[in-house]
Design a protein around this nucleic acid. Sequence first.
RNA 1: GCCGAAGUGGCGGAAUGGUAGACGCGGCGGUCUCAAAAACCGUUGGGAGUUAAAUCCCGUGUCGGUUCGAAUCCGACCUUCGGCACCA
Length: 839
Amino acid sequence: MAAAGTTEQRYDHKEIESKWQERWARDGLYRVRDDDPRPKWYELHMYPYPSGDLHIGHWYAMSGADVHARFRRMQGYNVLHPMGFDAFGLNAENAAIQRGIHPYRWTMDNIKHMREQLKSMGTIYDWDREIITCDPSYYRWNQWLFLQLYKAGLAYRAHAPVNWCPSCVTVLANEQVIDGLCERCDTPVTQRDMNQWFFRITRYADELLDHSKMDWPDRLNTMQTNWIGRSEGVEIDFDISEHGLKEKTLRTFTTRIDTIYGVTFVVLAPEHPLVDALTAPERKAEVDAYVEAARRQTDIQRLSTDKEKTGVLTGAFCVNQLNGERVPILVGDYVLLTYGTGVVMGVPAHDQRDFEFATRYGLPIRVVVAPPDWDGGALAEAYTEEGAQVNSAEFDGLPSADGMQRIAAHIEAQGWGHRTVNYRMRDWLISRQRYWGTPIPMIHCERCGTVPVPEDDLPVVLPEDAEFLPTGESPLALHQGFVNVECPQCGQGAKRETDTMDTFVDSSWYFLRYTSPDTHDRPFDPEAVRRWNPVDQYTGGVEHAVMHLLYARFFVKALRDLGLLDFDEPFVRLFNQGTILANHQKMSKSRGNVIAPDSYVETFGADTIRCYLMFLGPWEQGGDWSDSGINGMARWMNRVWELAQRDARQLDDFPRDEAAVRDLKRSVHKTIRRVTDDMERFKFNTALAALMEYTNSLNQAWERKGIVSEDWNDAVEKLLLLLAPLAPHIAEELWERTGHRRVGAGLKSSTKLDRHQLSSVHSQSLPDWDAALAADDVVTLVVQVNGRVRDKIEVPASVSEDEAKATALASQRVAAHIEGKQIARVIYVPGRLVNIVAR
RNA sequence: GCCGAAGUGGCGGAAUGGUAGACGCGGCGGUCUCAAAAACCGUUGGGAGUUAAAUCCCGUGUCGGUUCGAAUCCGACCUUCGGCACCA
């Protein structure tokens, strides 16, 4: 007995769902064949991290993707909709430290469990193509691809200040730092100087800005564009030869070269390599203290925009070569080493930060671009708009936009600098000081330097007997058997690289591996990739906008340039589904607010949960989880179950009535059209609403009589076909129960499917609609007077404009509202309304 | 601060220039039942009006505008969410 208030199932969902899941697997219904003659459709959903349990958010995301993939399949495509696991990552390693379970076992146990859960959803994944990234057969190709990128100069090692998460005890890519906090654990990130491996994604910055070859949401394109942050400007040298250093100039970057005559100081980033050399002996103590303090700050402290701009004088000077003026050099922490050249020319009159800085330290403020109606006096704040050049020697009087060009040309002619482009995006830092990731296949030899592991020696396998201690040291670095190695070049003792790769490397090409997961001699079979890629439809959460989606695009472009691929973009279409929240918060294990689907599946079955989730609202919207409406979906499933199994022969006792048949057909064809359009656009909520309306109208048609069994059975068949992508089990069971055991309906005979496969509802084609049959022959015309509804009249759909207007004007209800008024105009919208404008 | 999206009944939402509230939940009334649950039928934005109806008015965050007609387009503002943010 169900609990009070819970809808009782009229059918045994457990029995039919397990029956069909087993039979589909046995018949290989969802096995994807490369030799299928139908046009291909690659529909991919972002693979999950194997955290251990599928929560309701996974169901929401995966159900929508599965519905759409099934829909395409029934539209006649050979659909590849694969699934796998993003199996490397910190959780597994933390479990090892905390509970002594080896990351491999922890991960594989989770995968085993999650795979079963995914199967219980009734998805069409072809498990023969599953990918598990922590398997050496997968990650060896991470290593191989790394070596190709290294050979091409796209992977390099550099000593650089990097983001460090003290809690995860590893470095992070810029993309993984959110508001100065670690993306994973919200710990404030600090800076460290370390030798690290990078991928040269910046080489592709301009191409990554081009979204014209894809059909992506504008929002996504904007996010990537903002992230890349292209800005055009000029690099200009300031003369520091008076200090007698090896470096004779100090290079700065500016987007406002028109303000060059307004430079009254120059500021170095605290980490700038010339800080020490330029600092005068008497200033050393103060500068050292300042630099030290800056380095100790976290990013959030340092990058806080409302913090006062601080700095110290170095005692050194440089010369602005345009006017020969000597200006002081300072160190200030508002200057970032990682952007531009790490040196800023201070133009306080025309940059608000410089203005605040100059005001605080009493540095001169000289206007060189005049604001409109400027009286020549001091400014209250920086003027950052365009204007006329003043105090700018021979450029005086020019509009600053022209000044910009002329001054840049002058500087280039003099050899003091050149026009250039800067990007906010940095190279992708892929080193991680952790165990559970792909070992970077490099060896450090004292004699030969950094030497790649020969391709024949791949994979570099993670040692199984590593020790997981809560010390923060990488288990690989402590593992002597792993570290000590012969140099492949000179044969002498050498040290293995102990950093592992960011897991985003794995996901940057997994969509290639799905096409040929068993290929052993290369990362993917070029033929298979050519057949399936690029991905036609990618779905997943928007949180990957500037990480995974940018990295994968970079990979494809780099592999293309290596001759491994012949297309430019990995994902042609992209759709971001929304997130299911729990009490307005993102669901996560650490918050402890994860909603498990298990008990709902137990009570209502997978079909009902899938449909309920899809019915909540538009798929892109997500929303707060509530189970308050789930009974309604269960109730509807029961109604479908009952309705599809009625014995239609009793209808034959009544005479066939053409009007009733026509109305039923109209309902059938309108529904096919609506559901098809909605599914196409991921509007599963309105597709379901259309199906619900359809079952309501089928009920009415049954009550009304006048249709015969043939009409009814045809209408029910259409219902099952349209329902199949959403509720695959019940649709299949009812398909069988309504006598559809025949072979081959709607499938081309050349496909190599056996009779079990062909008899499945999921092997049928979606029905087509007939516009003539879907058309109304009577329409309701709304009659308005001055825009307010006053009457509704039924007219034939073929009504002419004159007839419609005449009928509207003849309405009694209208008469009362136009009495004593002049009719100024009558507006007619065909098939919809007549609006009488009366004054 | 800049850029973008959103704001509609008690609730999830539908309608993207033409009947606001499709579809569903919940509520209310009824049928069945000893009773309940389930199921089924009816009803359900607010107000005025009437024995009952007809009918009328108000209503899509706020205020204005464009239009014969605005949830929808435009302007300003408020709120929420997302992105970027000392990027020179």
